[in-house]
């Protein structure tokens, strides 16, 4: 009888422990519009296309900046919504990043204040409609980066790393710029990595339905 009482007490303790569930949902209310216009279709990489394959021109430290940027964006997710990897052949890539001109001067990344010594632009590919009405990109994403002789070698390196991460953000589907200058996805970014607003925005983007499929030779009509 005593043993049975003990067993019942042990079971009750377990159930009580189980009842003490108090997880708090995070606040993701601070985000910005990720489409250029609210009527635009939404794009994000589908789970079936992961990991997204990035190719970087072997110029200066560009491959290193791309790897940093991809890792930075991966860390904005908790549930495996986005993964990327670098590939060595541009023919295998979903996104191609190139640096115009010669290699920039060699300089380490530092915490110095940002200097605008580079620019970048992401070309969002055109779409076509498949027979089913489904939109699909007809080309890969292309990112062009350019650096200027302004500031120290570290200023140029910091700028290229920052702008590369910003452009990778566009290739994830954040086609708009953040209205908050502190965000990585602001038009002229000064942040070195995504902020809480950038994170909330990209998380929300990856939990709404994507209207466009990524480029794939197999999907397009011959």
């Amino acid at each position: 009888m005593q043993t049975r009482s003990r067993s019942v007490a042990a079971l009750a303790s377990l159930l009580l422990l189980g009842a003490c569930d108090s997880p708090n949902a995070p606040d993701r209310s601070s985000f910005y519009e990720f489409r250029l216009s609210p009527s635009d279709p939404v794009f994000h990489w589908p789970a079936t296309a992961l990991p997204v394959r990035f190719y970087a021109d072997q110029v200066g430290a560009l491959p290193e900046y791309v790897a940093l940027g991809v890792r930075m964006w991966e860390r904005q997710f908790l549930y495996g919504e986005f993964r990327g990897e670098l590939v060595s052949d541009s023919a295998d890539a979903d996104v191609i990043l190139s640096l115009q001109g010669s290699a920039p001067p060699d300089g380490p990344l530092t915490d110095d204040p940002p200097v605008t010594s580079c620019t970048g632009v992401t070309s969002v590919p055109p779409t076509t409609e498949l027979g089913s009405g489904q939109l699909v990109y007809t080309e890969r994403f292309q990112v062009q980066l350019q650096w200027f002789s302004r500031g120290s070698p570290s200023d140029i390196a910091n700028c290229l790393a920052r702008v590369t991460a910003h452009e990778i953000g566009h290739t994830l589907g954040v086609f708009n710029h953040s209205p908050t200058p502190d965000d990585l996805m602001a038009r002229s970014p000064t942040a070195r990595e995504p902020t809480a607003r950038d994170r909330a925005t990209v998380q929300i983007l990856y939990h709404v339905r994507s209207d466009i499929l990524p480029f794939s030779h197999g999907l397009l009509p011959p």
Partner: peptide, 17 residues
């Protein structure tokens, strides 16, 4: 009980049974 550092950093602070 379950939680991870990444969940806490995200703001999911309570452990889950």
């Amino acid at each position: 009980r379950f939680s991870t550092l990444a969940l806490r950093a995200e703001g999911i602070t309570g452990d889950r049974s």
